[in-house]
Amino acid sequence: MTLLIQYTLIFASVLILVALGGCISEHSGVINLGLEGIMVIGALGGALVMKFFKTDSSFLMILLVVLAAIVMGMLFSALLGVACINFKADQTIIGTAMNMLSVAGATVFVKAINTAADPNDVSSTIQYNGPKKMFIERIGNFEFNWFMVITLVVLGLVCLFLYKTKYGLRLQACGEHPQAADSVGINVYKMRWMGVLMSGALGGLGGICYILAGVSEWKFETGVAGFGFLALAVMIFGQWKPYRIALVALLFGMFRALSNVYIGFDFLYNLKIPSSVYNMMPYIVSLIVLALSSKHSHAPKAEGIPYDKGQR
């Protein structure tokens, strides 16, 4: 049971981080379908730090890994910003391209590093068994992960940002009615860039959190298994509101955690349901949830529509 709670919390953390990223981006008016790719690149950044940086201070390690993931995520999200904000490209195509680009790019990159170190090593795997332990505090059976705290802090900060700061107000105005924002002198492009970069930061953070959730090595060819899109489903069901997103993420996190730990529950194990079914669960649940919650959506009104200063 502790194991279930532990996995639920950590997967929920991933979903919260990434969904908040999507939420900020959409509030600024840009649909970020590249979150999946941003997660991969963020994870890559963090994993590289863990591979190459040696320290005994877990604080320093956590700080650097988190920073690397954030920076890489932001850099990668700039691809979305340039294309969709400045060049008004189709946000769906660009998002899809970013997802493919991230996996192919990370694979090529990691393989190149591995092959350079050892010509016989053609894998796309990075190991981080040692540094991973620094993120975890054992409390009895429960493995406490520092990302749970980071997520809580981020959740608080995002709420504060969206509802209590002037940039939050302006950002939301750009997603709802960019012409209105423009008419009071707000630079819509700038605010949308801010939204995209912040979603890049949160997506990158979610990515590193995801690969640290269970295993101690990551094969970059596999990407992040649709988690970026699950996060978007969480965001839609959470109606673009941070605290609702957090609650929904817990629900989704639990279904994802079940596939990791169902063997530990005798009654579930005795049902003899193939593991594939548990793997499917989060996706099936999200489809059902989407079907129930998409009809009356509270999406920002201007999301997905490129802003053109000339059109008023």
Binding site: I93, M100, L101, A104, V108, K111, A112
Partner: peptide, 17 residues
């Protein structure tokens, strides 16, 4: 590695945008 081709095709999609 052979994935360099995947990389190129994903760059091409990006540019198609």
């Amino acid at each position: 590695c052979s994935q360099i081709s995947d990389l190129i095709s994903s760059i091409i999609i990006y540019l198609c945008g």
